[in-house]
Design a protein around this nucleic acid. Structure first.
Lengths: 156, 156
DNA sequence: TATTGTTATACTCTATAACTATA
DNA sequence: TATAGTTATAGAGTATAACAATA
């Protein structure tokens, strides 16, 4: 019986995860025209975690390196990041936020905050903190398993 | 001070919403080859809410009707839904799940459940129920505001 | 005239595979 | 040989605009 109840919760969760797309699209609408969601995510992560290589950024975004490479090209073309030589490894370069990138990030923080203030006006700080906690855990549950899956791809 | 703390939570939430993409992609990996996430979502909604028109399905998926039209074509080509005349309105047709569609849905429920069991093995039923509750509320907060925004698009 | 749906077009995001350069 | 990154290609999802048919 407990198993059947859990199974129903899983179906509901799958539906909600699918529905989150609407939330993400709404967030995307507020972004500057030349800064799509993936660019915004890359800038945010470079700010939060500091200078890093493409491979590291790929892990943080949980996408293939080829995808990250394109995103980085986009934000580099706009002068938001620079690629510097990696003294540790000649194959890599280190991504570093520029001053312009930091200003762009200020804009991003502002518009995302405004959007969330609008839509979540009746949420308390505690509500939001709780949601953040659950999403953080969800990400970890998937991220950790995903990492071990990728690591053991040769020996399934 | 409370405002500043809330602002920081908003930034965190924006980051998490972006990160949910990884979860959705992982869910998508388990789906049958010819049933992409949008098709699965459409079938799920048709099962949950029953026979409906394209416009209603568009609202539930929170995407433009042109998008839904394509998704419905995809699942109709595979025999998972049928379009029946709408006695109420000659411009519309009613979408109805077929027997094959119901069998496809059984498969979908099975694979999504298996995926979630794998990744969320250390979550209790209560954890999942709490997450479902917060996601439901999040969807509503965005959905309701979005609906009123669309309704008042002429008078901004 | 207004609404329901469809189609054409374009853009974003993503993965796979083939390739280059360095370790 | 193996790894870091790039590029080419293809597929999914989406929105806008132009269109057809019906209300």
């Amino acid at each position: 019986m407990a198993a059947r109840a859990a199974r129903r919760s899983y179906e509901e969760l799958a539906r909600h995860l699918s529905g989150i797309g609407a939330v993400r699209r709404e967030m995307a609408r507020g972004l500057p025209q030349d800064c799509p969601p993936a660019s915004a995510a890359a800038l945010t992560l470079l700010h939060k975690y500091g200078e890093m290589r493409i491979g590291r950024l790929s892990e943080l975004m949980a996408v293939d390196m080829s995808v990250t490479s394109r995103h980085v090209s986009h934000i580099e073309e706009r002068g938001w990041v620079e690629r510097h030589p990696d003294p540790q490894d000649g194959r890599s370069r280190l991504l570093r936020l520029t001053e312009r990138g930091r200003r762009q990030l200020d804009t991003l923080v502002q518009v995302t905050t405004e959007t969330l203030e609008t839509f979540l006006h009746d949420w308390t700080d505690e509500d939001i903190a709780r949601l953040n906690g659950m999403l953080e855990r969800l990400r970890q549950s998937f991220g950790d398993s995903r990492a071990s899956r990728l690591a053991h791809e040769d020996t399934p």
